[in-house]
Write a protein that binds this DNA or RNA. Structure first.
Length: 995
RNA sequence: GCGGAUGUGGUGAAAUUGGUAGACACGCUAGACUUAGGAUCUAGUGCUUCACGGCGUGUGGGUUCGAGUCCCUCCAUCCGCACCA
């Protein structure tokens, strides 16, 4: 065999492993480069060809950067806590750690086969206690911090305590709930009166018991326990974060989710909302991911306005982005859950309101979302007072106002908001037109820049000016102020699961406390991985002696969510075995941010947001010299499967008025089906038979007719064609393998195939997600075996731009495999002897090399992995034509190829006489002087249409070229005797004659 | 509804700053050599026309000597968010 990829790849994979070729150490003499992949969850299904796509791209880039002389960190690990291993444990009793270990082994085998340059000595696993010890440590730091709005960063809780001790809350500007003190229980603070507004003096604070102090501090910690409305998924038995829910059901499994008030750990990510938006400007991510994050964080600026309730000791606070339209407020709407609803509702309307509130409480989030078109609401009987003009404003409740956003209440301005407009019209509430000359017969006027009217001091103003003036007036009068709101909610951090990081938390006297620093809380053994009978999380099953460490009355029973471990793993790679800290500062200072991060776009609102949050936190607390984790990110597209479909003849009969389908056992070649369906979707038996005859279908028509007539059973039946997925292994080039398909599923064993005129059976195809369900999964192991890892690597890149989703089609892989063989033949004779010569290459041969060096380097720099493969193919084709076997050229080419096909490059490099690995070879230097041409072939166009080409010396001036073109005999025909209006000569590009 | 992205042969795609549209592959057609493994080589292959030529980058318009590329309009597909006040 000429190019024995199988032997070569095995040989070098073994040597690389033995020589630790891809191990890296910190080296201050070299510039660093950090290339990171999103580490995988090791699922039981193993890898399909879509998974390695990003890894191959990053591996190529890492190898390229190494050739350029960078010290490249390119690690890999596993996000190994997760639900599937736990569910498997529930079903089988097998400890999730064992399942996980097995899956990791399988992943590792598959990855090793592809020839990645990962430094496996740096592997991390989030489920490894030596790793999650530091996840717990980071949690402890977050718990031990508050967010100081004055300095705009997280600070140790001790600095807050100092402030409280010396000055109470008077100098404290902290990120916290708007009315945090309302959650304090009267029984814990018996001396507080009803009018306690959250202001504490130093002596208040200092008189508190430690428990009372702790209860207050909990409202300021960045990781805090609170009763909060969470997304509870009964099916999974756990709470879920907002980003784990899609379309109102759980992302995993698609189970229903309900709102539930539970005491849970939360992360005060909302404190970072503004910075998380601002800092997006400084990182090189795709615009779409940035937009998704901006959207998710949802910043809106406006004002907070307080409306007094008439005849009641209550006020309603609203948030509005359009304070300028306040004179158009003709009613208010509270969320049904709003705390004031009960208090302000008058006796007359109590029944209505109670019914409405009750009704709303029964609905799930999903019901509410799907019900948005219905306008509903109820009047409370109460009125608010317009703060500027004292007018009465009716207070309603309505589901369109969300309790969880803003203040849970709105001032409704029907003239300026479509929902308010619809609500007003539906309930016959008056509308004040506050916009000059606006037509409000059909819809509200939402244009910010429309001048105002009926608005006293705002009349004639518009836009930001009006908004600013309105806010200024409110602030002066003392009932409102400018305010920024975010859609981003704090992240629920507790999960009621076993297979996750335990918290470094225990309870004593009802208080959550951190375990002493340095004590690792590893997962205790439990008898079952299910919740307890009374609904406690699985960890509640562990008895005191089951815990590796135990403090206080009880350990925390929740575990951390999946995103905890993945929020900082890129830091651990820098120093994976450190037992003293999460990573040594000198190593962090060397490797710094991830320079290139490659992974899927599906983590836009989860992992990527949380990792940014934790990075900013660690930066604030002085543990990191940077505040964004991933400087540049590329999101690879999904590789889709190409499913094959066959069509079966179905017979539809009428029986007792019901349609009944019967399968005939006959399958129809797709090309025939297309022809037939163009004429009609359904066929009578006789017409079908004659049509098949006409189109030269190969089948025993008599037998088919018999069969169909039997099914028809004398009635007037119609024949139609149903689709069915078939395993792609039985299909080659859309032709069904009639022998092998019979052994696939029983129904095919006896099937009859109606072949086309050529005696073939063609399949239709369709592009689906790659999934067992569609029988379209292609796995990399088979391809490595058939074509080799180098071919797989090249082909995955050759498919198209990395960012784009594209269908996998194994057919094309021959193309790149042939290219590699052709490349091999540049170095070898027909008898496969190595024939590289030391002769000096010709100018043409050097041109090919240098053209390719430039193209490959440029393309890699701009992230165009696919076109590099083309460039290498072109070079190989050209050198084959030139019969070039010169060392100088081939050696350069060998290095160019090595990031893509490291095994072959290594083998050839070795044969070229090198002792060291090709992966350490210097990237060839591009010499522009070699590409200087004496002549340029100009495309000559007339009125923009290219007609012919003419070569001119590179030194010729545009004037001379113009003259030469017009004098050329080929021009006569197109000039048609006219004098050109203008001749445009762009040196080394084009000549255009304008007539 | 809002936001983001994408529309180029039979297929995957290329064309980086406006300058020969379809590189490189797959597939297909014909031929050669052979017939055992899925091979290799040669030629052709956007559409249309006998041909000269004409038409071609989702649609319609614009700017320009020249537009896949820039501007406007509309359409389609995908993704994200969605009574967010």
């Amino acid at each position: 065999m000429e190019y024995d990829f199988s032997a070569i790849e095995k040989k070098w994979q073994k040597k690389w492993k033995e020589a630790q070729t891809y191990r890296v150490e910190e080296d201050p003499s070299k510039e660093k480069y950090y290339v990171l992949d999103m580490f995988p969850y090791p699922s039981g299904a193993g890898l399909h060809v879509g998974h390695p796509l990003g890894y191959i791209a990053s591996d190529i880039f890492a190898r390229y950067k190494t050739h350029l002389g960078f010290n490249v960190l390119h690690p890999m690990g596993y996000d190994s806590f997760g639900l599937p291993a736990e569910q498997y444990a529930i079903q089988t009793g097998q400890h999730p750690a064992i399942t996980t270990e097995n899956n990791i082994q399988r992943y590792r085998e598959q990855l090793d086969q592809i020839g990645f340059s990962f430094d496996w000595s740096r592997e991390v696993r989030t489920s490894d206690p030596a790793y999650y010890k530091w996840t717990q440590w980071i949690f402890a730091q977050i718990f031990d911090s508050w967010y100081n709005l004055e300095t705009n960063k997280a600070e140790p809780i001790s600095s807050l305590i100092e402030k409280l001790e010396s000055n109470g809350t008077y100098n404290v500007e902290a990120a916290c709930e708007d009315h945090w003190w309302k959650a304090l229980k009267a029984e814990d603070f018996p001396h507080f009166g009803e009018h306690f507004e959250g202001e504490l003096t130093a002596s208040d604070w200092n008189s508190f018991t430690p428990k009372q102090q702790e209860l207050v501090l909990m409202h300021f910690r960045l990781a805090y326990l609170a009763d909060s409305w969470v997304n509870w998924c009964p099916e999974l038995g756990t709470v879920l974060a907002n980003d784990e829910i899609k379309d109102g059901v759980s992302e995993r499994g698609g189970h229903p989710v309900e709102r539930k008030l539970m005491r849970q750990w939360s992360m005060r990510i909302s404190a970072y909302a503004d910075r998380l938006i601002q800092d997006l400007d400084g990182i090189d991510w795709s615009e779409s991911i940035k937009e998704i994050q901006r959207n998710w964080i949802g910043k809106s600026t406006g004002a907070r306005v307080i409306f007094q309730v008439q005849d009641a000791d209550a006020s309603i606070e609203v948030f509005t982005t359009r304070p300028d339209t306040i004179f158009g407020a003709t009613f208010m709407v509270l969320a049904p859950e709003h705390e004031l609803v009960e208090q302000i509702t008058t006796a007359e309307y109590k029944e209505d309101i109670d019914a409405y509130v009750h009704n709303a409480s029964l609905k799930t989030e999903r019901d509410r979302q799907s019900d948005v078109k219905n306008i509903s609401g109820a009047f409370t009987g109460a009125y608010a007072i317009h703060p500027f003009n004292g007018k009465q404003i009716p207070i309603w409740i309505g589901e369109y106002v969300l309790a969880s956003y803003g203040t849970g209440a709105v001032m409704a301005v029907p003239a300026g908001d479509q929902r308010d407009f619809d609500f007003a019209n539906h309930f016959g509430i008056p509308i004040i037109n506050v916009f000059e000359g606006a037509d409000l017969s059909e819809a509200a006027t939402t244009d910010k820049n429309h001048p105002l009217q009926n608005s006293e001091f705002l009349n004639g103003k518009s836009g930001q000016e009006a908004i600013n003036d309105a806010i200024l007036a409110m602030e002066q009068a003392g009932f409102g102020q400018g305010k920024t709101n975010f859609r981003l909610r704090d992240a629920v951090f507790s999960r009621q699961r076993y297979w996750g990081e335990p918290f470094p938390i225990y309870y004593e006297d009802g208080q959550a406390r951190l375990v002493p620093e340095g004590s690792l809380v590893s997962l205790p053994e439990v008898d079952k991985y299910l919740p307890t009978a009374d609904g406690e999380p699985p960890l509640a099953r562990a008895k005191k002696e089951d815990w590796p460490v135990f403090f206080g009355e009880q350990m925390e029973h929740n575990t951390m969510p999946g995103w905890a471990g993945s929020s900082w793993y890129f830091l651990r790679y820098m120093d994976p075995n450190n037992d003293e800290c999460f990573a040594d500062r000198s190593k962090i200072d060397y490797w710094k941010q991830v320079d290139l991060y490659i992974g899927g776009a599906e983590h836009a609102t989860g992992h990527l947001l949380y990792a940014r949050f934790w990075t900013k936190f660690l930066y604030d607390r002085g543990y990191l010299p940077f505040h964004e984790p991933f400087a540049k990110m590329i999101n690879q597209g999904m590789i889709l499967g190409r499913s094959s479909l066959v069509y079966r003849l179905q017979v539809k009969t009428q029986e007792k008025g019901l349609n009944k389908d019967a399968s005939s056992g006959f399958y129809l070649s797709n090309d025939l089906r297309e022809v037939l369906e163009k004429e009609s979707k359904e066929w009578g038996v006789a017409e079908l038979i004659s049509a098949l005859e006409k189109h030269e279908a190969q089948i025993n028509l008599e037998a088919l007719k018999d069969r169909l007539e039997k099914l028809e059973d004398g009635g007037d039946a119609r024949v139609w064609f149903s689709r069915q997925h078939v395993l792609i292994d039985h299909v080659d080039n859309d032709l069904l393998n009639l022998e092998s398909i019979r052994s696939w599923q029983p129904e095919f064993a006896t099937a009859q195939f109606i072949l086309n005129g050529k005696g073939e059976f063609t399949c239709a195809y369709e592009i689906d997600k790659m999934s067992k369900r569609w029988y379209n999964v292609v796995n990399p192991d088979d391809l490595c075996e058939h074509y080799g890892a180098d071919t797989l690597r090249l082909y995955e890149m050759f498919l198209g731009p990395l960012e784009q989703s594209k269908p996998w089609d194994t057919k094309g892989i021959n193309g790149v495999h042939n290219f590699l063989r052709k490349f091999w033949r540049l170095f070898h004779s027909q008898e496969n002897t190595f024939i590289v010569s030391d002769e000096t290459p010709s100018k043409d041969e050097l041109k090919v090399l240098h053209k390719t060096i430039k193209k490959v380097s440029d393309d890699l720099n701009r992230g165009s992995w696919n076109t590099v493969v083309s460039a290498m193919m072109i070079a190989t084709n050209e050198l084959t034509d030139l019969k070039c076997n010169k060392r100088e050229v081939l050696e350069g080419l060998c290095v160019l190829l090595s990031p893509y096909a490291p095994h072959m490059a290594e083998e050839l490099w070795n044969k070229l006489g090198h002792e060291t690995s090709v992966s350490k070879a210097a990237w060839p230097t591009f010499d522009p002087s070699i590409l200087v041409e004496d002549e340029f072939e100009y495309p000559v166009s007339f009125n923009g249409k290219m007609r012919f080409k003419l070569s001119f010396p590179a030194t010729m001036s545009p004037k001379e070229i113009e003259a030469a073109v017009l004098a050329n005999e080929q021009s006569e025909k197109y000039l048609e005797g006219k004098t050109p209006k203008k001749v445009i000569v762009v040196p080394k590009r084009i000549v255009n004659v304008v007539l």
